[in-house]
């Protein structure tokens, strides 16, 4: 009954390593065993997952037309230099 992954206060600090699959096998199985029995930590893991999901859920930033035009102009300059018109 010792080692990291035993108490809730340890588990909450291991959540990201757990989600990233970066725990050593022993710690990982202790965390899994803990999560199977602990509602609080199971909810906490879900909350961390949801946090990541909410971060990715906003609309992508728009690309403003002047910036797009500027980059397309740069592309045309590059293409013109590269392949001389035939």
């Amino acid at each position: 009954m010792t080692g990291p992954g035993q108490d809730c206060q340890d588990v909450v600090e291991l959540v990201t390593d757990y989600l990233e699959d970066a725990l050593d096998p022993d710690t990982r199985s202790r965390v899994r065993g803990h999560l199977a029995e602990c509602d609080g930590c199971e909810v906490y893991v879900d909350q961390m997952r949801r946090t990541a999901a909410v971060l990715g859920a906003g609309d992508p930033l728009p690309l403003e037309p002047p910036m797009r035009d500027r980059l397309l102009t740069a592309f045309r300059d590059w293409a013109a230099d590269r392949t001389p018109p035939s």
Binding site: D7, C8, D10, E13, D46, R50
Partner: peptide
């Protein structure tokens, strides 16, 4: 430091469930 407020957990010397959630976090589902 810890990423979760230590006050959320029972103290290390608590009888029964030391360092476990003092009260379960709310389900967001």
């Amino acid at each position: 430091g810890p990423t979760v407020d230590p006050a959320r957990f029972l103290p290390p010397d608590a009888a029964g469930w030391p360092r476990h959630w003092a009260s379960t976090p709310y389900d967001w589902r």
